[in-house]
């Protein structure tokens, strides 16, 4: 127990001293996670909207598959993407393995089902009168879709928060596709795993605190944003 308290106190000191190594790890984590969340949102929100309102065969099957993919293990995504981007893979020529791009690709695949599923749920619950109102006041299909997304913005924001939480905390994809290269692809979670292997708990705990701090900050931002626009 003492070691945990000692580690915790040392971690607080490490964060307080703004250790460059620590800041670099946090920076890589934020950069990769924010980029993958942004890309997944740009794909998942419209995708979820189209699935929710579109009429096409096997729609229910597609929703069931997306729901199933919510439980997708990160190592499975890691293996899947690895098969394509390793030197012998289909996209091996692009030399993506052990780069931040590879991590982003893996994370996007991981969280698109989250964003899409939550978006389907959010826009499906929006009162149909919003659609009719937008149409009757002369909105075209794109403007009508935008109004529905706007009304569902709290649910969609929740989808993005959940997706960000998933990627900032995942370790499998970052380790398998990023390779935990110091100063380049080392994220908070891969660094924590490494420090655990080395028996160096101080940096591990410090990174754990930083991870929670970052998540708290992001949620605080979204809460502030939601509170500000809710009328």
């Amino acid at each position: 127990m003492d070691f945990l308290i000692d580690s915790f106190l040392s971690a607080v000191l490490l964060i307080g001293s703004l250790d460059p190594g620590l800041l670099q790890i946090i920076g890589v984590s934020l950069k990769v996670s924010c980029t993958s969340t942004l890309i997944a949102s740009l794909l998942g929100v419209p995708g979820g909207f189209i699935i929710a309102f579109g009429r096409f065969p096997m729609k229910r099957l597609l929703i069931t598959i997306l729901n199933t993919l919510l439980a997708l293990p990160t190592v499975v995504v890691g293996l899947f993407v690895y098969a394509f981007i390793s030197r012998r893979g289909l996209f091996g020529v692009f030399d993506l393995l052990y780069t931040q791009k590879a991590m982003i690709i893996g994370q996007v695949i991981l969280i698109i089902p989250i964003v899409a599923t939550f978006t389907i749920s959010a826009v499906s619950r929006i009162d149909d009168r919003y659609r009719k109102t937008a149409l009757t006041v002369g909105a075209n299909l794109l403007q009508t879709a935008w109004m529905i997304v706007r009304e569902a913005r709290f649910g969609i924001a929740a989808a993005i928060i959940a997706a960000f939480g998933r990627v900032i905390a995942e370790v499998g994809i970052s380790m398998m596709l990023g390779g935990n290269v110091r100063g380049f692809t080392r994220t908070m979670t891969t660094a924590m795993a490494l420090e655990y292997d080395k028996g160096q708990f101080v940096l591990g705990v410090a990174l754990g605190i930083a991870l929670l701090g970052v998540s708290f900050g992001v949620n605080l931002f979204f809460n502030y944003f939601q509170g500000k626009v809710r009328v």
């Binding site: 009168r129 009719k132 109102t133 002369g138 809710r230 009328v231």
Partner: peptide, 17 residues
């Protein structure tokens, strides 16, 4: 549609001002 507008029985306003 831009010539005709329907105001529903229980009208709904967009969640804004």
């Amino acid at each position: 549609r831009r010539k005709v507008v329907l105001v529903e029985q229980q009208s709904i306003l967009f969640t804004t001002r």
